[in-house]
Amino acid sequence: MQRSTGGKERLGRTSRMGERTLRRLLIIAASAVVRWAKRKGVPAESRLGRMLARKPPMLVIVAVANKNARIAWALLTRDGIYRAPAVTA
């Protein structure tokens, strides 16, 4: 679902109509990221750190999986190359 207004795209939530195996793999990968972040620590000012402080772990896992899916989709549709965001010190 897409709702756009004023030139700003707003995409809807990730539906359950997609590929089941792909969704499962995204959740497994995101849970590994969250588990690693809890064990090793993550900066409190990072997006993941802020979410872990406020939200239940499963909700954070789904949010990370959703973000990863959107990044992958954008890269595939635009023939892009992933460049990690610059870390500010």
Rank of each mutant, 00 (worst) to 15 (best):
V33S: 01
P57N: 10
M1P: 04
G49A: 06
M17H: 15
A89L: 09
M51D: 12
V34F: 04
E45F: 05
K55Y: 10
S46G: 08
T77P: 00
G12S: 12
V64K: 03
T5W: 12
L75I: 05
A86S: 12
A89Y: 05
L75Y: 04
P56E: 10
A74F: 12
T77Y: 03
Q2F: 13
R13A: 11
G18Y: 11
T88A: 08
K67G: 07
S31C: 07
W73I: 08
N68M: 09
R24H: 07
R47H: 13
S15N: 11
A29H: 03
A89I: 00
A84R: 15
L76I: 11
L22A: 13
R54Y: 00
T14Y: 08
E9D: 10
R83A: 15
V42L: 01
K40G: 00
V87E: 14
Y82W: 12
V64S: 03
V60E: 04
I71H: 04
K8W: 09
A37F: 04
G41C: 02
I27N: 06
A84K: 12
M51F: 10
P85T: 09
G7I: 01
M58C: 02
A72E: 02
G6I: 01
G6C: 05
K40H: 11
A37Y: 06
N66S: 13
S31H: 11
I27E: 06
L48Q: 03
V87N: 07
R3C: 11
R70T: 11
Q2D: 09
A29L: 03
K67H: 15
L59F: 00
T88Y: 10
V87G: 07
V87K: 12
L26W: 02
T77I: 13
A44D: 11
L26V: 01
K40L: 06
P56R: 03
K67M: 13
S31A: 15
R78T: 15
M1C: 05
P43V: 03
R39Q: 09
G6M: 08
L52C: 05
A63F: 05
R83H: 15
R39H: 02
